[in-house]
Amino acid sequence: MPISPTALAQLPVRRLDTTDLLACADLSENRGWPREEHKWGLLLAAGTGYGIDDPDGDGLLTCCVVTSYGPDLASIGMVLVAERYARQGVGRRLMRYVMEQAGETPLALYATPNGQPLYEGLGFTEIGRSAMVKGHFSGVGPTPRITVRPATADDLQEVLRLDHEIFGLDRTPLITRLPAFADHLRVAVEDEAITGFAAAWPNMDTHVVGPLIARDTATAQALVASLAAATDRPLRTDVDVRHTELLGWLKENGLVTIADNAMMLRSAPALPGDATRRFAPLTVAAG
């Protein structure tokens, strides 16, 4: 039975946790997205999920996840509304609730073309764009001659230090989960110093490259090439379009653009950190 707008507006928002993983994956599938259970597990463990239960007992009516980086930034991702409740103000209501919970904390997100008008109406501003590219890495042409090796436990503190420097905020809860979450974790090294790192984690039939943090484009290329050599799956990654050299190289090596998303921010003029060395996020859902 359809729910009236008044009744929808009165349904309570609740916190989600890892016990809600399958319900979140079901909602992804309902909207034509991949189930991405592996990614949902990370997001619900490292972040805070919010959702509204379907009053008919049919799973979640809507959900999202917020990854906090302290008082200076939080990222919103995986905003989903069940198809039968689409265009009824449910997503806007959930977003307003999350914004109230965030208070003065700046909020970031990646918006699809369909979702961007909603976020603009809520005070988010486009600050850039990201290209999602996917394909089998061909490895044509020379790879930069930069030393890349598998990361070890001894590298963790240096990886955390470098990530904090380049991302601009502490994301220890995410980075320390990478060894268990990713199938492959690589570091680039020069004179025994780590100059970049990247992970490849399983997502359906692909390996997602992210995060991709590197001193320069050549280092980013060497990290991607090393990860590609470790898998037979297609690669997928989300690259800030300002990194034109890296994007061009990826396309020369067989990856093609499959989506273009807006990078959006609310209550701050710009993201912290160094965008010139931040090539790809761990996942757009976590900023």
Rank of each mutant, 00 (worst) to 15 (best):
T62C: 13
T62H: 04
T62N: 04
C63F: 13
C63W: 00
C63D: 02
C64I: 05
C64R: 01
C64M: 14
C64A: 14
V65N: 04
V65I: 10
V65K: 02
V66W: 00
V66E: 11
V66L: 12
V66P: 13
V66K: 04
T67F: 02
T67G: 06
S68C: 11
S68I: 10
S68V: 12
Y69M: 12
G70R: 07
P71Y: 12
P71L: 08
P71G: 12
D72V: 11
D72G: 13
D72N: 15
L73Q: 10
L73E: 06
L73N: 08
A74Y: 03
A74D: 00
A74W: 05
A74N: 04
A74C: 15
S75W: 14
S75K: 06
S75E: 10
I76R: 00
G77D: 07
M78N: 07
M78F: 03
V79W: 02
V79E: 05
V79N: 07
V79S: 07
L80Y: 05
V81I: 03
V81T: 14
A82I: 07
A82C: 02
A82K: 09
E83T: 14
E83L: 15
E83A: 10
E83R: 10
R84K: 14
R84L: 06
Y85E: 03
Y85A: 06
A86H: 11
A86G: 10
A86T: 08
R87D: 13
R87Q: 14
R87N: 14
R87T: 14
R87F: 09
R87E: 15
Q88C: 09
Q88W: 08
G89T: 06
G89S: 11
G89W: 12
V90Q: 02
V90L: 07
V90M: 08
V90P: 05
V90C: 08
G91P: 07
R92T: 13
R93I: 08
R93T: 13
R93M: 13
R93L: 13
L94R: 06
L94C: 09
M95H: 01
M95E: 06
M95T: 02
R96I: 13
R96M: 15
R96W: 03
Y97F: 15
Y97C: 08
V98D: 00
V98H: 01
V98P: 00
M99S: 04
M99Y: 02
M99P: 01
M99F: 04
E100K: 08
E100G: 12
Q101H: 01
Q101Y: 03
Q101G: 00
A102F: 02
A102W: 03
G103V: 01
G103T: 01
G103K: 02
E104C: 08
E104V: 09
E104S: 12
E104M: 05
T105R: 15
T105K: 11
P106Y: 07
P106V: 12
P106D: 05
P106L: 07
P106H: 04
L107A: 08
L107W: 01
L107F: 05
L107G: 03
L107Y: 01
L107H: 06
L107P: 00
